[in-house]
């Protein structure tokens, strides 16, 4: 079952953000205990729990592949990517689907929440105390009223080096 969200037009490379107005509109999601966000224009779909086929001989970040309306999507486990412990067994995880260079990827996260547009004034660059692995994939932080929102850089998240099999 997939929940549809807005709205990247089909066929367009949605990681390119056009119009700075929307640059800070984010889809928020939970990975572990941390609230994160990705630019709304990068997101093609939000999916509920899916049947994911394991792919042998791939690095641990690759959870496998899934079938989205006839197209094969590579699922990337963000918990592994961000060096977090594996989720509890009963957790049904959701995915955020993005497209880069014609290939579809699904970012596997704990849950997907709402769309937010935090004020620009609350944006700050990565503090030096941010753990290395987060700093690698984060493009900044929003200071919300009660917590921090880490903005994830999708391109860097998906820059997976092919390991020697």
């Amino acid at each position: 079952m997939s929940q549809q969200l807005a709205l990247a037009p089909a066929g367009q490379d949605s990681s390119a953000v056009d119009g700075r107005d929307n640059a800070h509109v984010l889809v928020t999601l939970m990975v572990g205990d941390q609230l994160c966000g990705v630019p709304v224009l990068s997101v093609r779909d939000v999916l509920g729990p899916q049947k994911i086929t394991r792919i042998p001989l791939t690095p641990p970040e690759i959870a496998g592949s899934l079938n989205l309306r006839g197209r094969i999507v590579t699922a990337v486990d963000l918990r592994v990517r961000l060096d977090l412990p594996p989720p509890p067994a009963d957790l049904k995880r959701m995915s955020v689907v993005t497209e880069i260079s014609g290939e579809l990827y699904a970012l596997l996260v704990d849950s997907v929440a709402e769309v937010l547009s935090p004020p620009q004034s609350s944006f700050e660059p990565n503090p030096p105390t941010l753990p290395k692995v987060w700093a690698r994939y984060s493009s900044g932080i929003y200071r919300l009223a009660d917590r921090l929102l880490v903005v994830l850089d999708v391109t860097r998240l998906l820059a997976l080096k092919p390991e020697q099999a």
Partner: peptide, 20 residues
């Protein structure tokens, strides 16, 4: 592309029951 270097696979496909 991240999996292209694995020589044992020449591609992937979707079966009639939807599985990849």
């Amino acid at each position: 592309p991240i999996m292209r270097h694995i020589t044992m696979f020449s591609g992937n496909t979707i079966l009639g029951d939807g599985a990849v």
